[in-house]
Computed example of a mutant assay.
Amino acid sequence: MDPYAVIIKPHLTEKSMNSIDQKNELTFVVRRTANKTVIKSAFEDLYAVKVERVNTQILKGQKLAYIKLAAEHSAEDIAVKMGVF
């Protein structure tokens, strides 16, 4: 599956911005039919980083993916590349 079809957009809230610094974790709105393994491989293909784990949640009709990066990668660096900061 195309990684751009799986990961739709970053989900930016105060909580997600805090988790970038504190937990090394990024939050994205993803395709509702995508499972955790598909989300993990799509994110690794797009950003060339190693993902430690993926948690998902459906909130207000949108599926959110909380993507925790491995310790050797920085979520803040990826956020800067995306233009979040």
Score class of each variant (00 low, 15 high):
Met1Trp: 11
Pro3Gln: 09
Tyr4Pro: 00
Ala5Gly: 08
Val6Pro: 04
Val6Met: 03
Ile7Tyr: 08
Ile8Tyr: 00
Lys9Ala: 11
Pro10Trp: 02
Leu12Ser: 02
Thr13Asn: 06
Lys15Trp: 01
Ser16Glu: 04
Ser16Gly: 08
Ser16Asp: 03
Met17Cys: 03
Ser19Trp: 02
Ile20Tyr: 10
Ile20Leu: 12
Lys23Ser: 11
Asn24Cys: 07
Glu25Gly: 02
Thr33Met: 03
Thr33Cys: 03
Thr33Val: 02
Thr33Ala: 06
Lys36Cys: 06
Lys36Ala: 08
Thr37Ala: 14
Ile39Ala: 09
Lys40Ile: 01
Ala42Arg: 12
Ala42Met: 08
Phe43Ser: 03
Glu44Cys: 06
Leu46Gly: 07
Tyr47Gly: 02
Tyr47Asp: 04
Ala48Ser: 14
Val49Gln: 04
Lys50Asn: 13
Lys50Gln: 12
Val51Pro: 07
Val51Ile: 04
Arg53Cys: 04
Arg53Glu: 13
Val54Arg: 05
Asn55His: 11
Asn55Leu: 08
Asn55Ile: 06
Gln57Asn: 12
Leu59Val: 10
Lys60Ile: 02
Gln62Ala: 13
Lys63Asn: 09
Lys63Phe: 05
Ala65His: 05
Ala65Ser: 06
Tyr66Gly: 05
Ile67Asp: 07
Ile67Asn: 03
Lys68Trp: 10
Lys68Leu: 00
Ala70Trp: 06
Glu72His: 09
Ser74Thr: 11
Ser74Val: 07
Ser74Asp: 13
Ser74Trp: 08
Ala75Glu: 09
Glu76Thr: 09
Glu76Pro: 00
Ile78Val: 13
Ala79Val: 05
Val80Lys: 15
Met82Leu: 15
